[in-house]
Write a protein that binds this DNA or RNA. Structure first.
Length: 603
RNA sequence: GCCCCCGUAGCUCAACGGACAGAGCAGCAGCCUUCUAAGCUGUUGGUUGUGGGUUCGAAUCCCGCCGGGGGCGCCA
């Protein structure tokens, strides 16, 4: 927040250490815990340890020496600008800010910068985030939701941190699963499709499940059943072959059914407030990827076993000279010369870097595919694609259900649309109970925002790489550490400001009065936001923002409960607190936005 | 067999290598003539799976083990 002062202090510390021959590795600033006042702190353990290694001060324990240094530095720093007092405790140097000045600067900065408060300086790097990769001809389930909300939040964070960000969606619109649906639809269901967008999408999923059953060998199969199944299997293969050859009938059938899925997907993305910049389709990189395979064969990286009925493979470990198996052998073309998921990812990487000129490419895809991406990136490297090192797989734990893994085939999936509908119903019920005076015209809109807020937060408040079990009652809880709790803080702030009926920008607030600990804590939280954004962007972790938003909301709720604003005892305090409330509302709004959660004006 | 992820309070999860490991839920006790009680305050609950190592300092980094999940030649 106060970088200039902080740097000046840092320079003074360095100067002191240099004069006294104390090696100082780095100055790391931390907020002072056990608050009640605020400030920054740093420790001298590293310096004391480094000094001990040089042989100086033999026999003096490091913590003791660290405390000595802290005390010495403290005397040097007395009277530094912006610092009310300094103390040396247990090897730490704590610098307490002067409260009135700090409070004014924090609040003013937020109100001046508004929606841009916390944003990072523009970085000259273009980042692509790929997420939202559901298969077409299926329905969007809660696992796809985690992927999409994670990717969207990450994209918003990176963008806000200053990176030029491109959001990419990569629906799986071709592959054996898609062909399976096409085959069954064409054979058994053509012309029977439901009219509702979502029902139609879900209907395709039902067809997929049925078709898969018809095609899966059964234990007690009769010879007739076996013959029937093999006949179906042959038809499915034939359909894939025709698609691959560009057969007009199959292609038309495919485009039409694909569009049903895409219509549903676009509708869902809109519900989630997600705006994709670039749509890639697997089918579009199908042909280009075959060219890469040819090149890999020609250059001896891939081995073509098709003449003996085998596929085209890359023996990655062998090419890298590894003795232990790590990347293994990857199949990059089926024996019938059709491409695989991996094949297409090779071409897609090329498109991203060469056609869209990105500097970095992030793939938000669940952890189970980590081998796939390691293989893809290594093959690209072997191929000589130098940006391979700029590809990053952001894995996350998959979502399962209390009864086990989701399985479309067994009909055991939780569809996003069902959760969405349920969320809205629950919020409407809660509104009826808690805020019966809310106008009817507002209710649905608020219910959507709050319901989606609860769901989004339940996903984003768990670290990416952790698996999660989806339980409706937990995901749609409105109490405690949840999205609605944060939204409610925003609403309460908004309510005060609405009733204040004053314009704030007139005078700059004065905090020249004894601040309560609640005000101090709230200002402390507000001032953390820019660093939080930076950390989240560096680590690719929306969780950092999610945790912060909750802490900020907690600080606000406590403040709200304990500190009168409209009824403050003096006009100065009233104006200062109104400004603080406005600042808190702004930062709550900014952090919710990074989580792709909307902030309702009332709830 | 090899590779990846996870293991922290009864449950679900946090914790830039730093000060007393924190929240929510569940439990218990309080707070609505005052800005929205979707809230606030207090309280119960821990040998961070385990054994070593590195470090002034380890839940965090390294190695081994145990337990759970996932992946491993023509699914995506």
């Amino acid at each position: 927040m106060f970088e200039r002062e902080q740097q000046a202090i840092e320079a003074q510390i360095r100067a002191y250490c240099a004069e006294n021959d104390i090696p100082l590795p780095e100055v790391k600033w931390l907020p002072i815990p056990f608050s009640g006042e605020w400030g920054i702190s740093t420790s001298f353990f590293a310096a004391a340890a480094a000094e001990a290694r040089t042989g100086k001060n033999k026999g003096v324990p490091v913590p003791v020496r660290a405390q000595e240094i802290a005390e010495a530095v403290k005397t040097v720093l007395s009277g530094a600008p912006g610092i009310a007092r300094a103390e040396a405790v247990k090897g730490y140097l704590n610098l307490y800010f002067s409260t009135a000045e700090t409070a004014r600067r924090v609040v003013e900065t937020v109100l001046t910068q508004g929606t841009r408060f916390g944003a990072g300086a523009p970085k000259s790097e273009r980042v692509m985030v790929e997420y939202a990769q559901p298969n077409t001809h299926h329905s969007f389930h809660i696992g796809h939701y985690r992927n999409t909300i994670l990717g969207e939040s990450l994209a918003r964070i990176l963008e806000f941190a200053g990176f030029e960000t491109i959001r990419a969606s990569y629906p799986g619109d071709i592959g054996l699963g898609v062909i399976t649906v096409l085959w069954a639809y064409d054979k058994f269901y053509k012309g029977q499709e439901p009219s509702d967008v979502h029902e139609r999408g879900q209907w395709l999923l039902k067809i997929y499940v049925e078709a898969t059953n018809l095609l899966t060998p059964k234990d007690d199969e009769t010879p007739e059943e076996k013959a029937q199944r093999e006949q179906y299997e042959a038809e499915r293969r034939e359909m894939y072959r025709k698609w691959d050859a560009g057969d007009p009938y199959v292609r038309q059938l495919w485009l039409e059914t694909r569009e049903w899925s895409l219509i549903e997907l676009r509708d869902i993305l809109e519900m989630m407030d997600v705006a994709i910049d670039v749509w890639f389709f697997e089918s579009e990189v199908d042909e280009p990827s075959k060219k890469i395979v040819e090149e890999l064969i020609a250059r001896g990286i891939a081995e073509d076993e098709r003449s003996t009925g085998g596929p085209v493979i890359v023996k990655i470990d062998e090419k890298l000279g590894l003795t232990k198996e790590k990347y293994r052998v990857a199949v990059i073309l089926r024996s019938d010369s059709t491409t695989l998921y991996l094949t297409k990812d090779l071409a897609l990487a090329q498109v991203k870097f060469e056609q869209y000129g990105v500097d970095r490419s992030i793939y938000v895809v669940d952890n189970r595919q980590s081998l796939h991406f390691q293989q893809a990136f290594k093959i690209l490297e072997l191929w000589g694609f130098k940006q391979a090192e700029k590809c990053f797989h952001l894995g996350y734990g998959f979502v399962s259900l209390p009864e086990g893994a989701m399985s479309a085939r067994r009909g055991r999936v939780v569809l996003f649309k069902d959760v969405y509908d349920e969320a809205i119903q629950r919020v409407l019920a809660t509104i009826a109970e808690k805020n019966p005076t809310m106008p009817e015209s507002e209710r649905l809109g608020v219910a959507k925002m709050v319901g989606m807020g609860a769901l989004a937060y339940s996903m984003l408040s768990v670290d990416n790489n952790k698996d999660m079990v989806f339980v409706m009652d937990e995901a749609l809880s409105f109490d405690g550490r949840t999205g609605p709790y944060i939204q409610n803080a925003y609403v309460r702030a908004n309510s005060i400001l609405r009733k204040a009926n004053t314009t704030l920008q007139a005078a700059s607030p004065s905090f020249e009065y004894p601040l309560t600990t609640h005000e101090i804590e709230l200002i402390e939280q507000i001032s953390r936001f820019p660093n939080v954004v930076q950390q989240a962007a560096d680590e690719y972790r929306p969780l950092v923002v999610a945790a912060y938003a909750y802490d900020l909301a907690t600080a606000f709720h406590s403040f709200y409960h304990a500190v009168p604003v409209l009824q403050a005892e003096s006009e100065t305090m009233r104006m200062a607190r109104l400004a603080l409330v406005a600042a808190a509302r702004q930062v709550l709004s900014n952090s919710l936005r990074l989580l792709a959660i909307r902030a309702p004006e009332i709830m």
